[in-house]
Amino acid sequence: MNLKELLLKGQNFISLLNEFRIDAKDLIIKDEETIFSNQTNNNTEVVKESVWIEGKSNEGLVNLFGTLHYNLLNKLAVFEMQGYEKVSA
């Protein structure tokens, strides 16, 4: 299960996507491979990482910036948004 699937299990994250009119299929977590390749995260139950999530809406691109809290053992992930940027199409 990837981070996108874990985030989409939460109603708060889905509400955030709806607020910006982002379709879940058009969602990309930037540098997701880098997050998982970090060797210091392997022995930690809960990990916090700064992330950039890019989504497409009918108005253009929406970039969400924040902190991702995740626990792969319990299959939980939460996104704490700190800011956003809209880029017109």
Rank of each mutant, 00 (worst) to 15 (best):
N18C: 05
F65H: 06
L73A: 10
L76A: 09
V47H: 03
I35S: 00
L27Q: 03
T34V: 12
G60N: 00
V87G: 05
Q11M: 13
K75N: 13
L64D: 04
V46P: 05
N74V: 09
D23K: 03
R21K: 14
G55A: 02
V62M: 05
N58S: 12
K75L: 12
H69M: 15
I14Y: 13
K48L: 15
D26H: 13
N63A: 09
L68N: 01
E49A: 15
E32F: 03
V87F: 07
N42G: 10
T67R: 08
S37A: 09
S15Q: 09
A89N: 11
E85N: 10
G60H: 03
N63P: 06
L76Q: 12
N41P: 05
G83L: 01
V46C: 13
I35V: 08
E49T: 09
I28R: 08
L68P: 04
L73H: 12
M81G: 13
S37P: 06
S50E: 12
I22T: 01
N74F: 11
G10Y: 03
E54F: 07
D23W: 00
I14S: 06
K30Y: 10
L73T: 15
S88L: 14
L27E: 05
S88F: 11
F65W: 07
N58V: 08
Y70S: 03
T67M: 08
T44L: 14
G55V: 03
F79H: 03
E33L: 11
K75F: 06
Q11D: 15
M81C: 13
V46L: 08
E85M: 06
Q82K: 15
N71C: 04
L7F: 03
